[in-house]
């Protein structure tokens, strides 16, 4: 009946569907099944959050970026510096990191979002590159190329210390990811989120509808920056270490690859692409330390040739046929 009534279908789009429980069940199951890999698992969860921030900017907002690491790294350094200066409580550190990255997002967004296409891409790249140089040079504060040492991260909720096996890190990252995801999901289903999609499809038309395109893109860019910052803080707190490569090009580029792999603009792409990429990276670099990236590259070429919308796009196509 619902399919026959377009109004009802549109009005029901934000409702939860059962497959949406799968990633969370898998994450909880992985906690019990792979106790030896929880440190990697925590990084995967943090990277999924980072992937969500890219999905918001690029997948929904249609803003091309190769510099999301600027926000990831800002978050990582914020949390790291706080912990290195005796303010190691993880939760306030996380919030401070999100706010610092969001502030940078708002500020750089004012410039970046006035551009479009290739110029916009280069501007995002530049912001990250400038910050990376700064982190490199300011070794008195950041430890320079050696990275930020002597972080003393406190206990989560004042109870659970970050241990060697990553149990705390994993559950902490999972909880943070879940909360951020709830916010993101609400956002993309809100009128604001729908208007972002409208701007991605045809920004001139949204302007003609009376929508303040620049302001809304700036808000989206700022929120995504905040999410990336929280993700960077999760990394820093769970590894106890921050280096300038957290602001580097690899950090900006790889996450795009992961998201393309999973499917962009589909909300769940990061949940598929990130674990796949990172587990493959972990396994392949064991099996073939010199050329592991070749195999990832080959997978991507096949993906682009045969499954443009990523794995989720492929799944949607199969379901339709």
């Amino acid at each position: 009946m619902i399919a026959a009534d377009p109004v009802a279908a549109l009005a029901a789009r934000h409702r939860w569907r059962w497959p949406e429980a799968l990633p969370w069940l898998a994450a909880v199951a992985a906690f019990f099944l792979f106790p030896g890999y929880l440190a990697l698992g925590a990084q995967i969860l943090a990277s999924i959050l980072y992937g969500l921030s890219i999905d918001l900017v690029l997948g929904y907002g249609g803003i091309v970026t190769l510099g999301q690491a600027a926000f990831f790294g800002t978050g990582a350094y914020t949390a790291g510096l706080l912990a290195a200066h005796g303010m190691g409580a993880p939760e306030p550190g996380l919030i401070a990191a999100g706010l610092a990255a969001a502030a940078l997002g708002a500020l750089s967004g004012l410039a970046v979002l006035r551009l479009s296409g290739l110029a916009q891409l280069m501007a995002t790249l530049m912001v990250a590159a400038m910050l990376q140089s700064a982190a490199d040079k300011a070794s008195a504060i950041t430890g320079g190329a050696d990275g930020l040492q002597n972080m003393a991260v406190g206990k989560v909720l004042g109870l659970f210390a970050f241990g060697l096996y990553g149990r705390t890190a994993y559950l902490y990252a999972l909880a943070v990811l879940f909360l951020c995801f709830l916010g993101m999901r609400a956002l993309v289903h809100s009128p604001f989120g729908r208007s972002l999609v409208g701007m991605r499809e045809n920004a001139a038309r949204m302007t003609a509808l009376g929508a303040p395109v620049f302001a809304r893109r700036l808000i989206a860019y700022t929120i995504a920056a905040g999410m990336a910052g929280i993700s960077g803080a999760l990394y820093a707190q769970s590894t106890g270490f921050v280096a300038p490569d957290s602001l580097g090009f690899d950090r900006s580029g790889n996450i795009l690859v992961m998201l393309l792999l999973g499917g962009i603009g589909r909300l769940y792409g990061a949940f598929i692409g990130v674990p796949l990429f990172m587990v493959a990276q972990d396994r392949l670099s064991d099996l073939d330390p010199a050329y592991w990236y070749f195999w990832i590259g080959l997978g991507l070429v096949l993906m682009v040739r045969f499954a443009r919308g990523g794995i989720l796009g492929l799944a949607a196509r199969i379901r339709r046929e």
Binding site: P6, V7, L10, A11, A12, R13, H14, R15, A186, L187, H189, S190, P191, F192, G193, R194, S195, V197, G198, E201, N202, R205, M206, L209, G210, A211, P212, R216
Partner: peptide
Amino acid sequence: LFRNLTVLENVTLAVTERHGAGGGMIRPAG
């Protein structure tokens, strides 16, 4: 138009903006 969106959604986007509701971030559009 918004080519990849449905006809109904195209018009809904317009109606939403006219009512000044296009910036709402909490309540689902549905």
